[in-house]
């Protein structure tokens, strides 16, 4: 599915380049920060990912990496061009600069791929960059319809997932044997619902029971997420829905009280009193001593004045 095209420019005078680099020593090396190839340009790679959320938002994500001291690290500030079908100017979707982690992320315009057929290809390319060799990577993904419905019958909560694709005539075909993972959104990440992913049957469907003991927000709301990750035909597909299947969260008023682990505004009163009493006591004495030195100065002046008289 993925085809990587690395366009290299080894150069006629590769050896001379190496010698020149050697002579310029660590200065040139330190300036680039990356390991260089025989062309004098830094080696670079692109990992291209396609993600589709709720059959609506489509994201292309290019992770740009370069070799620094022998290990691959994200390269920031690199302009990555995204194309559709081929890396030609008329097919350019846009240019995005990689962030601090070396990731360039582009949200595709809505309806961009309509009438493109059952499969479509995207290309991420680095071209004419001062630091890096020209590099391309492409990804081909198939048209898909990934849906999740949530059903509650006789107090049993079930998640129903279906995955379909379409053939050349636009006919929908169920896709079986695809692993689907189920999660619930938590504050810092996704909580897996089961140890192993579910697998779609011949109808492209999955039916999974949803646990009844998960805490939700104050209204009992949970965000359920179904995911297909790194699929060779569809890339990453995600469907999420909010539903009040959680146990409503009861906020413990004790937590708002003054505790050691509370915010600075809610520090325990005894601690504030204790620390400030010590501070006032000790710094009061220090100020008293400083005042005493002022008295020494005053006595010195009066003695000097008396001696003069």
């Amino acid at each position: 599915m993925k085809k990587i095209k690395n366009i290299r420019y080894p150069g006629k005078y590769g050896l001379l380049w190496v010698i020149a680099l050697f002579c310029t020593g660590t200065i040139a090396f330190a300036q680039s920060g990356s390991d260089t190839t025989d062309t004098g340009m830094a080696e670079v790679s692109i990992e291209l990912k396609y993600t589709e959320a709720n059959n609506k938002t489509k994201i292309l994500e290019a992770a740009v990496k370069t070799k620094v001291e022998g290990s691959w690290q994200g390269a920031n500030g690199v302009a990555v061009q995204f194309y559709r079908n081929e890396a030609a100017p008329e097919q350019l979707l846009g240019t995005v600069t990689s962030d601090n982690n070396g990731v360039a992320r582009m949200i595709l315009p809505e309806g961009e791929e309509k009438n493109a057929g059952p499969e479509y290809t995207y290309i991420a390319a680095i071209k004419n960059n001062e630091r890096f060799e020209d590099t391309e990577e492409e990804i081909t993904v198939a048209e898909s319809a990934f849906e999740m419905t949530l059903v509650e019958e006789d107090s049993v909560r079930q998640v129903h997932i279906s995955l379909q694709t379409s053939d050349a005539d636009g006919q929908e075909i169920p896709v079986g044997e695809v692993e689907v993972s189920l999660f619930v959104k938590r504050m810092f990440g996704l909580l897996p619902i089961s140890d192993d992913p579910e697998t779609t049957d011949e109808n492209g469907e999955v039916m999974a029971e949803f646990p009844a003991d998960l805490p939700g927000d104050t209204a009992g709301n949970l965000v359920i997420v179904a995911r297909i990750e790194d699929h060779e035909r569809f890339g990453n597909l995600e469907f999420s829905r909010k539903i009040n299947w959680g146990i409503p969260l009861v906020i413990d008023p004790e937590k708002d009280k003054r505790q050691l682990w509370s915010s600075r505004a809610n520090a325990p009163v005894y601690l504030i009193v204790m620390v400030n009493s010590m501070l006032v006591g000790i710094w009061g004495v220090i100020l008293y001593i400083v005042f005493q030195t002022y008295k020494i100065v005053k006595l010195g002046r009066s003695k000097a004045a008396a001696d003069t008289v």
């Binding site: 001593i289 020494i296 006595l299």
Partner: peptide
């Protein structure tokens, strides 16, 4: 030197201050 001229009062203040600081610094 803060105008120090061995005035007995100056010496008294200094000794007292040193003693107070000597006590204060131990818990700190």
């Amino acid at each position: 030197a803060l105008g120090w001229n061995n005035h007995p009062e100056q010496e008294k203040i200094l000794r007292r201050s040193e003693r107070i600081l000597a006590i204060l610094i131990i818990p700190v």
